[in-house]
Design a binder for these strands. Structure first.
Length: 685
DNA sequence: AGCTTGAGTATTTTT
DNA sequence: TACTCAAGCT
């Protein structure tokens, strides 16, 4: 069989990574553990795709390759590329086992549901559902009425999730990450115990359970052997963002690391809040004897050297890491430096960005090849207003998701309940859509339904409160139709929409926009073959922005990209504008005092900077307005220069001011002049 | 029991 | 500004 011709287009390090492993005469292909350290923009996806192609070329059955990625989109992209590389040699290469840890877990658990004591039609709770369930338990246990303020549902869930994913005791989790909740340890333990019971009763798994069940299955010798026997090669992308639980799953599947390839960049580890630990990638080679092979990719195909100089200087200031220096393959001669722009406040920042974006577009760079990046979603608020005012279309990634919108959850709750009759959460939501039905009536109805062994026909006999009476027959009929086992999936979403539309108008404002979302949802639903698949994939892969909240640009129209840095991972743009580069944001004020978090903040800035191909602006407003004050208030703090912008980094930047910045009297260096925010917060510590 | 209204509070990033 | 919670009204 001919070698893959495009391997020649790879650089030596990429080629070594793609071809690692060997096939002795008469033997099957084999490879020991491999770690690919792929710096930003060094052709990671391409290399990994070539590795997949190479494996197939060497006789590995694509159906026996497990490819774990961070997002579904990444999995699709990888499959597409591998297919294209193999294009000439092979007809059709499908990688059926590619997806996120969570979606693969979902599939494996369904397959072996009976063996782990689950119904095969268990529900997957998305973040919001899980929080609702947590809230329910929280109320039941009387914790919401405590004298002192008990953590809110989202905090409870975050604590629970962190504890599960790190596999550390609750007390440690609290002390380290949620110190302000430490006094509630006993109550939280009880709460979590009840939460687990509730989930089991509902036959519902949250995100963490998906991993926990896979973990448990991998720990069972018999089951592990069965699962393991399905795969010859395991490849893991974005390994720096895996957590302890995920690493343990891999270790259980491949104790000696045979056929295991992990790819990542420790310098881009930015998910510790999700319990990811950069130690996974730092300690990977030493797990094995002999240590895993390490290949480092340092040739950057994305950015100009000027941008890389700044990024290299920034990351070199960090502590524990695989040292590497990115070298540009493009624009080697010219070294235009990124700008460091100081200006007055966030309004000036917004105006500056708009001006620069338009100027760059004049220069021939379309809006969609430019992006504005920020640490947290609300940092873009002022800019969004300005963009709307100036009629510049944009799409915002990160922040509020389609699936988190109340009306979308309403519509889905009907399908979710139909799909899993034991799903009390979905039932509660669905029932309360009707007037006159609140938590109490919903509970009564569900209890009756449960007493009737979840028989859908029994719903019709339930006597609802007077206000709901006129809607009841249609509702019972709808549910019976949706749940009918032999009923076709096609058209179900449409039936739900028709039933729900009158209620939508009563329950929510902006009904027209929301109705549009439901049509959109119907269109998405049609792309899935079964209801179960639709619902679980939707929970696992929250569709990106619908755009309706961000101004709905037509798809063929040109639009500016707004994105959180976390959502910008793996992407690139010709011009990147980075907002609020000042101490307090980089690093975030919440991470002060914990060195490992400060290091993560450094990496976050690094990720943001390395998204840029040609133009990069770091913008630093001098004045930050304090929230929580009247509209006309003028309380503000002065942002100090980010501690990451050391002399070495500044030497790689062009420092300028814009607008009236220089007229302000600004304290030089040091910490915040008036730390109002800190004072407000200290009340709670 | 459910719905409405008013008051008080706020820890970023997401599979 | 947005969201949650609890009191008070229907």
């Amino acid at each position: 069989m001919a070698a893959i011709s495009t391997l020649d287009t790879l650089n030596p390090a990429q080629r070594a990574a793609a071809r690692y492993g060997e096939r002795a005469a008469g033997q099957a292909f084999s490879a020991g553990p491999l770690l690919i350290i792929a710096g930003a923009g060094t052709g990671k996806t391409n290399t990994l795709a070539h590795r997949v192609a190479h494996l197939v070329q060497e006789g590995v059955n694509p159906q026996r390759i497990l490819l774990l990625t961070f997002t579904r989109r990444a999995a699709a992209e990888m499959t597409r590329r591998a297919q294209r590389i193999l294009g000439e040699a092979r007809e059709e290469v499908k990688l059926p086992w590619s997806g996120t840890f969570h979606s693969i877990a979902n599939r494996l658990i369904r397959r072996y549901a009976a063996r782990v004591g689950l119904d095969a039609n268990f529900s997957v709770l998305d973040r919001g559902d899980a929080a609702d369930l947590m809230d329910l338990v929280r109320h039941e246990r009387g914790l919401s009425k405590a004298e002192k303020r008990f953590p809110r549902k989202d905090t409870c869930l975050a604590i629970y999730s962190h504890r599960v994913n790190t596999q550390r005791p609750l007390a440690e989790t609290l002390a380290d990450v949620f110190p302000w909740c430490a006094e509630w340890e006993d109550e939280l333990t009880g709460l979590f115990r009840a939460y687990v019971e509730k989930k089991l009763a509902n036959q519902a798994l949250d995100y963490d359970d998906l991993l926990l069940y896979w973990h448990a299955m991998a720990a069972d010798a018999g089951l592990a052997r069965e699962i393991d026997a399905q795969f010859d090669q395991i490849l893991v992308d974005e390994y720096q963002d895996t957590n302890v639980l995920q690493a343990e799953i891999l270790r259980a599947l491949r104790p000696a690391g045979a056929g295991l390839t992990v790819v990542g960049d420790d310098a881009q580890a930015i998910y510790s809040f999700r319990a990811a630990t950069v130690e996974n990638i730092l300690g990977f080679p030493a797990q094995y004897a002999p240590p895993a092979q390490v290949v480092t990719l340092e040739q950057n195909y994305r950015s100009t050297q000027g941008i890389l100089d700044a990024a290299n200087a920034l990351i070199a200031g960090g502590e524990r890491q695989y040292r590497k220096t990115l070298t540009a393959r493009r624009g080697a001669g010219a070294r235009p430096r990124p700008r460091y722009v100081t200006l007055l406040d966030d309004l000036a920042q917004a105006q500056y960005v708009v001006a620069r974006v338009l100027e760059t577009r004049e220069g021939g760079t379309a809006l969609r090849r430019q992006a504005v990046l920020f640490r947290s979603s609300h940092h873009a608020d002022v800019l969004e207003l300005e963009l709307v005012r100036r009629n510049i279309p944009y799409v915002k990634y990160g922040g509020l998701k389609f699936l988190e919108a109340a009306h979308v959850k309403d519509a889905l709750s009907l399908l979710r309940w139909a799909d899993n009759p034991k799903n009390r959460i979905a039932a509660f939501r669905a029932l309360q859509l009707m007037p006159g039905i609140g938590p109490a009536a919903a509970a009564k109805c569900f209890d009756a339904f449960e007493a009737n062994a979840h028989a859908w026909a029994s719903l019709g006999a339930f006597a609802p409160p007077p206000l709901a009476r006129e809607f009841w027959p249609a509702f019972a009929e709808l549910m019976r139709g949706l749940a009918a086992p032999e009923g076709p999936w096609q058209g179900q979403m449409g039936r739900v929409r028709e039933w729900y539309e009158p209620h939508l108008e009563r329950l929510h404002d902006a009904a027209q926009v929301r109705a549009g979302d439901l049509l959109q949802l119907e269109r998405i639903a049609q792309q899935y073959g079964t209801r179960e698949r639709f619902l679980s994939e939707l929970a696992l892969d929250p569709a990106q922005a619908t755009g309706d909240l961000a101004g709905t640009p037509m798809l063929d129209e040109d639009y500016l990209i707004l994105s959180t840095i976390h959502s910008a991972k793996g992407q690139e743009w010709d011009a990147v504008y980075l907002l609020n580069v000042a101490d307090g944001n980089f690093p975030s004020e919440f991470s002060t005092g914990r060195p490992e978090l400060i290091e993560e903040e450094r990496r976050l800035l690094y990720v943001a900077m390395t998204r840029a191909k040609t133009e990069l602006d770091l913008i630093a407003p001098l004045k930050y307005y304090v929230t929580q004050q009247s509209r006309t208030g003028d309380r503000h703090v002065y942002g100090a220069k980010s501690r990451f912008l050391t002399r070495e980094v500044m030497a790689c930047l062009d420092a300028t001011t814009w607008g009236e910045a220089d007229r302000e009297q600004v304290p030089v260096g040091g910490s915040l002049a008036i730390d109002v925010a800190g004072k407000l917060r200290s009340l709670w510590s």
